[in-house]
Amino acid sequence: MIKINNLTKVYKLGKKKMMELKTTNPEKIAVNGLSLETREGEIFGLLGPNGAGKTTTLRCVATLLKPTDGDVSVCGFDTVKQGADVRENICFLTNEIKLDTNFTADYMFKFFGELHGMTPEAIEKRQEELFTQFGINEFKDKKIEELSTGMKQKAAIAVSLVHDPKVVIFDEPTSGLDIITARVVTDYLKTLKEQGKTVIISTHIMSEAEKLCDRIAVIINGQKACEGTLPEILESTGADDLEEAFFRLYKQYNPEN
């Protein structure tokens, strides 16, 4: 489970970045006082537009970034002070983090298994399970660069799950995938949930959030605009569907638009 307590992340902008963003403020607040808690056996969704701070939040959870203020703990471990313990318990998937394409899925699986300190037998057993689940066995000995996008994504997911983590963090899980591969992925997220894992995903696709997530936090401008199950969100915003609810919240946080 993940506990985010008053998380704030401020980026210091270089001169070039400031020019790009047409701002004179050398600081950009990506996440602003965000708090939330996920439970075991649920899929939690961070829903928000591009640039809302979803990826930054997830990267803080995954120990890749250090919070400017506030703290994050995963399975009781602090992401800053006990980073290695946190990483033992999580897997983090995103489109930007990839497998080395010069190797086979088979080798990458074993490599990351070893980096997680697993025994060869444990890796073998786990590989059997996951490669069958994702249908990787037929292309496991091909170099990853030769695989299609869908195959690459499946291989990346399998490899990231090698150490059977308790918490699965997934930044935009279906982005760039065809509907069939996307379905394999979302189905597997449900399987993970049934196994009692904590799953946290970010998305800007309303239908995905509606269908997949047990609870949703709407993030706008780095702040939590609303949190709850789908019916709770609809009730508190007085909307008929999630899209409508999202727009109402968005207007509320950006009155000038």
Binding site: A62, K98, L99, T101, L115
Partner: peptide
């Protein structure tokens, strides 16, 4: 090269220091 291709980050996500 690994940084550019995003493969270094996957190593940073393991418990290895």
């Amino acid at each position: 090269g690994e940084k550019e291709r995003g493969t270094l980050a996957s190593m940073l996500l393991t418990p290895v220091s």
